[in-house]
Simulated scan of single mutants.
Amino acid sequence: MGMDATDLAHGLFQILATGDPALAAEVVHEDFRNREAAVSPTACALPGPAGVLASGAWMRSAFSDLSFPVLGIARNDEQVWVRLRMQGRHTGPFVRFRDGALDQAIPPTGRDIDFEQIHVLDLRDGKVVGHEAVRDDIAMLGQLGVFPPAPDTALRMLAWRVTGRAKRAATRVSALAVEAAGGPQDNPGQTR
């Protein structure tokens, strides 16, 4: 007996919060595509459960106590719309990417994040096959002191970039994402 659309939606965000590979195999279709992977490590764009597991590892590396309380769900046979909050504490570097390269590394601030998102999940064969989101990233960056820039946060980000800590953080976070996705064998073009 498979999960219904509501269970699939809750399951997807539980995977992101916990990194549960068994749940990922049950919830995520092998053809899964994440249209939001552009700002994350390249492993997060892998198809299927591997990309979701990589995305969760990337987010949990920056935010401890990560959770996604669901506020509302609307669904039909092919899609689920989920309104939720993303909550956590910024205890690790939050590294954002552009075209697979370091774009921005926000050093840990210890600040809490709590902001609303809407996710659209495409369903096929009783699993989640696609994801896109409407997120209030500006609210999150404001909660982290990045936008508008708080002087202490801006100086720490600059220091991290100048000293190479930002690049090292990007390398570490990318490696965590690859490991969560099942290792280099799942990434075309990479060798062990």
Rank of each mutant, 00 (worst) to 15 (best):
A139T: 13
R156N: 07
A175Y: 01
L16A: 02
L23M: 12
A105I: 02
G126S: 06
P149D: 10
M86Q: 09
F32H: 14
Q185C: 08
A175Q: 12
I15M: 04
R124T: 11
G183P: 01
R75A: 14
D137A: 12
R85D: 06
R96I: 15
D152C: 04
A25D: 11
N187M: 10
R135Y: 03
A170Y: 04
D125S: 06
D112W: 15
L84W: 07
R96H: 10
D20H: 03
P41M: 00
M86E: 11
G145R: 03
R89F: 13
V39N: 12
K167V: 09
D125V: 09
L84E: 08
H131Q: 12
R98V: 03
M140D: 05
V146G: 01
A24L: 04
P108A: 10
E116R: 10
V39D: 09
D103N: 07
P107W: 07
S174Y: 12
A101W: 10
D4T: 06
L176A: 15
F13E: 01
E132R: 15
L121K: 01
A50N: 01
V134D: 00
A175P: 04
A43N: 06
A50S: 06
R165F: 02
Q143H: 13
A181Q: 13
L84D: 05
T18R: 12
E36G: 00
D114P: 01
A37N: 08
